[in-house]
Amino acid sequence: MPKSATDIRHFIIAGVLVAIATVLMDLLLKALLPMPVQGSRQAQIIDQLTSWHLTLIAFLFSLVVVIMLYSLFVFRKSADDESEGAHFEGNTTLEIAWTVIPLIVVFVFGFFGIRALSDVTRAAPDEIAVNVTGFQWSWLFEYPDSGIVSSELVLPVDRPARMDMTARDVIHSFWIPEMRVKQDLVPGMTTTLRFTPVVTGEYSVDCAELCGLSHYSMVAPVRIVEQAEYEQWLAERSASAAPALANTDAGAETDAQSN
């Protein structure tokens, strides 16, 4: 083992270990953090960005932990050694380097972050609009084009959807984990959330903002279906008893409770 702490061999060994650890950590992190089904176009963008973040985390984690562990083993004091370590108080070049390089990384990730944000929030011309109302502790979905009120959210696959949302009592938050994106519902104002489902299936919309006693169970079913099935559902709902009850709060709540 080299004697001097500034011997180049120390840095080469540590550097190789950092590189190996980075690869292993990257695999481990992605195994420990399994994401739900990639159910929307937004999920694809967000997962890509997440993956870059995790790789950066794997590198920085390895960098710090490997150098720390290396120091702990290589530079540990032997039992009867009462002498002091090498006297160096710092290194301005190094300090500037590890200020400026992270600063550059911040702006690179900031740039990709801004791009991803504009991608996941962008409006589309052929959006299906749904009016969402959250209240303690349930959800209501109104389709303004057909006047349907439902306690289940049904959307066609591969069509951009826009949720125009408000809350009746306290703040709630709309979250379908498979769609990734999330937006609070605030009493007295309308908030908007956009996503484009790309995988058919049954999901659930969960309230993600603590909203009182039964917050944990403020969950509503979501079905992402083919366009034809969606149209059929719309037709069935329009033809059934719904029209008589639609557009009234009383009817809406009865509907919600009966489901």
């Binding site: 540990r76 004091k77 290194n91 911040v106 990730f109």
Partner: peptide, 25 residues
Amino acid sequence: LLVAVPTGVKFFSWLGTMWGGKLSF
């Protein structure tokens, strides 16, 4: 994200403190 920069300075400086020391535990 900028908070990462001064926080990073702390981490790297701690590593610099340990490197080449006579560490006891």
